[in-house]
Amino acid sequence: MKKITLVIFFFCSILPSFSKEKLVLGTFIIPRYIQSSTKGEFIELTKEISKLSNMDIEIKILPPKRTLLAFTQNEIDGYFPALDALQHGKVNKTSDFYIKEDFIFERKLSSYKKLKTKVRVCLTRGYPYHRKVLNNKDWVISYASSDENCIELVNLNRADIFIGEEITGLAAIKNLNLSNKITYNKFTPISEQSVYFAFPDNEVGKKRSAAFDKALKKIIMSGKYNKLFHLKEKK
C-alpha cells in the first residue's frame, strides 16, 4: 500500500511539467478574419499555433481600444492583430503573419484626385489605419461603423472615397449590390502595414514570441498557411 501511495505521489508531482502553458490573447472583431472567438482566419491561425507551441490559448474579444488598454495594464498576455500604428511603447513582436493593405474605393467614372476641395474620406471606426492616412491634411475624415456604411456614403456622394482592405471592401460592395458603381485600383494600395502578435517587453514576452515564431514557421513550411488564407501555392 505504501508503494502504491509513493507511485501516485510521484506521478502527481511530475504532471505539471507536462501541462500546457496557459495564456490569454486579446483581439477584436474584423470582418472575415475575426468573426468571433472561434471563427475567422486569424482565429484558425492562432488555434494552429496553440497546437504546435503546446500552449493553451484563450482568445478574448474586446473593442479595439479596450484590447490595447488591457494589454498595457497586463490584463491579457498578448494581443493580435498588432500593427506599429497601434503601439505606444516597446513590445516583443512575432514575425509578420499578414500584410494589411488598404485601398481607395470610389465611384466609377470619378476621381478624387481631380477635386479642387478637400477630399471627404470615410474610414471604418475601430480599424487601425496608417499614419499617412490619418495625418493627410488634404482630407476631411469621418467615421462609419462598418465598411458597408462607408461604401453607401460614397455611393450617395456623401463621401468621396472609402479606404479599406481589399477583401472586406469587395465583400461590402457585393453585399450592397454596388459592383457596377464602386471601383478601386487593385495594383496601388494607399498603405501597407505588417501584422503580428504582440507580447510584453520582458523575458516572458520574448520567450512566447519565439515560441509563436517557431510555430508560424512550421505552419508556413507545411503549406497550412496558404490553405488557411486560400492562397495559391507558388510554382
Rank of each mutant, 00 (worst) to 15 (best):
N54W: 13
L52D: 07
S13D: 02
L115G: 01
E233G: 10
I151A: 03
A82Y: 01
N149F: 03
I182Q: 02
L52N: 05
G40I: 11
R120Y: 06
V133C: 05
S110Y: 07
H230V: 07
I59A: 09
N135M: 07
T72N: 15
I141S: 08
I173A: 08
F42C: 06
L156F: 09
I49F: 10
V7K: 03
L216T: 10
S17A: 12
K65C: 00
K100H: 06
Q193P: 04
K224S: 14
I182Y: 01
S222W: 02
F187P: 00
I173C: 12
E203F: 09
F10G: 13
D84G: 03
R208S: 07
M221T: 13
I8Y: 10
L228T: 12
I29W: 00
E75Y: 03
Q73Y: 02
H230A: 12
I49N: 03
P31N: 06
I104A: 01
S179V: 09
L170P: 00
Q73C: 00
S110N: 11
T188W: 03
N136I: 09
T94Y: 06
K47F: 12
E58V: 09
F42G: 08
N185H: 13
E106K: 01
S110I: 08
T27W: 06
K90H: 01
E165M: 12
Y79K: 06
D77E: 13
K90N: 04
L231I: 08
I4N: 07
I30F: 05
R131A: 10
L176K: 14
F212M: 12
L25I: 05
T38P: 01
I61E: 05
I76C: 05
K20W: 04
T46P: 03
C12N: 07
G164M: 03
S142W: 00
I59M: 10
F71T: 00
K181R: 14
I163T: 05
K186Q: 08
V154W: 09
L15Q: 06
H130G: 06
I59C: 13
K224C: 04
Y98W: 15
V133P: 01
F28S: 11
I29E: 02
E21T: 15
N202C: 14
L231Q: 10
H88Y: 07
K227F: 08
L62E: 09
S110K: 13
K174R: 14
E203I: 12
L68M: 14
A171R: 13
S191T: 14
I151L: 04
A82L: 02
D201A: 14
I57Q: 11
P31R: 07
N136V: 07
M1D: 02
K218D: 10
E41H: 06
E192C: 03
S146G: 08
I29S: 00
F187E: 14
V204W: 05
F28Y: 10
N74Y: 05
R158C: 04
H230R: 13
G126Q: 08
